[in-house]
């Protein structure tokens, strides 16, 4: 009997934690979206919107009327934003967040995350197709083409990591920084893989130069063209959560460093034997790492390039990025075989 109670309590705590992490993920995402907008504006020589602008946008979108066009398939049209939002929120539960281990540790690893990463793109494409507008249709086609393109370098990176750690468990991969597990050739290999992942990030998040699916000047918003009000708000939230998700994934895979492993900041013991000072510093450091990754992979890239044509974007992922990723993987394997 007590086993059942324990199980129930355990899952109860877990679901509460997932809820908390979801809310925090949305909050941090919106905050960083504000940061992204402000910093890109400053790089372009503008003042830009205030930091709080994304929160105001969301508030406004949720207040507005949600219009469903006559030509749309209503249930799919309404379901798409929900799927797009839920997938990255679920993914956050499978990722180590700063000093904390994944909430759902042991229930899924890298492969699950790759699938969760694909769901928002598919949901967006479905929503676009369901809205029955020619612009949205073209946008959806582009989104699917782009997804097929960046999945290849992404999968290669996952294989290289899994080969190196001999596991798909994200907690195991992030328990030790990848850079300290290999030497010489392997380092070069992983650096190349990291490069491809940085290139995949703007595509994953539909930012310039890979925002063909939205392409404001070409398709007037592409697959979001018929969306409004609450549905558009959900997509907006989904986008920022996805940004946090992808950033956290990169941190977990390549930069799982904690300041507390070098310095101790004291304080009383609070959680799983961690000291309060260390906990606060580690969380802050994690958020800082996330900020840097978003700045480098999203903000700078977004302002420094023009939008690619869809065929060139596909080519970019399929040929140069895939080749770089494959060479990186080969180098990692070479290192592995030498070690044996």
């Amino acid at each position: 009997m007590s086993d059942v109670v324990n199980l129930a309590v355990n899952w109860g705590i877990k679901s509460l934690l997932v809820l908390l992490v979801s809310l925090l993920g949305i909050f941090v995402g919106l905050l960083y979206k504000g940061f992204d907008r402000k910093i890109t504006a400053m790089m372009q020589g503008r003042i830009g919107p205030p930091w709080t602008q994304p929160f105001k946008d969301i508030k406004k979108l949720f207040m507005k009327e949600t219009i469903i066009p006559d030509t749309a398939v209503p249930w799919l049209f309404n379901a798409a934003p929900v799927f797009a939002l839920v997938a990255p929120l679920v993914a956050l539960a499978y990722l180590p967040l700063g000093p904390f281990d994944p909430i759902m540790e042991g229930y899924g690893g890298l492969i699950l995350l790759l699938y969760l990463l694909a769901i928002p793109a598919v949901a967006m494409a479905l929503g676009g197709l369901a809205s029955g507008s020619p612009y949205a249709t073209v946008g959806s086609q582009r989104e699917l083409v782009l997804m097929m393109s960046y999945e290849l370098p992404l999968a290669i990176a996952a294989v290289a990591l899994a080969y190196n750690f001999e596991t798909f468990s994200i907690a195991a991969i992030s328990s030790e920084p990848v850079w300290s597990t290999v030497g010489g050739v392997g380092l070069l290999g992983f650096a190349m893989i990291l490069g491809t992942l940085f290139a995949v990030m703007p595509g994953e998040l539909s930012k310039v130069p890979f925002d063909q699916a939205e392409a404001e000047t070409e398709l007037a918003g592409g697959l979001f063209v018929e969306y409004s009000g609450r549905n558009l708000g959900l997509f907006y939230v989904a986008e920022v959560v996805k940004m946090v998700f992808v950033g956290t994934l990169l941190i977990a895979l390549f930069f799982p460093y904690h300041l507390s492993s070098w310095f101790s900041f004291g304080g009383p013991e609070v959680f799983n034997g961690m000291l309060l000072g260390n906990l606060i510093v580690d969380i802050a450091f994690f958020l800082f790492k996330l900020l840097i990754i978003i700045y480098v992979a999203v903000s700078v890239v977004r302002v420094a390039f023009a939008r690619f044509q869809i065929d060139r974007a596909s080519y970019f992922y399929w040929v140069p990025m895939t080749v770089i990723g494959l060479i990186g993987t080969l180098l990692v394997m070479l290192e592995g075989s030498m070690a044996i």
Binding site: M42, M43, Q44, G45, R46, I47, F305
Partner: peptide, 19 residues
């Protein structure tokens, strides 16, 4: 692909804003 633009952009982060 580091371009001239990226250098300019980082510089503009710290210069006076035109707005």
């Amino acid at each position: 692909m580091p371009t001239q633009t990226i250098y300019t952009l980082i510089k503009q982060l710290f210069t006076e804003k035109a707005t």
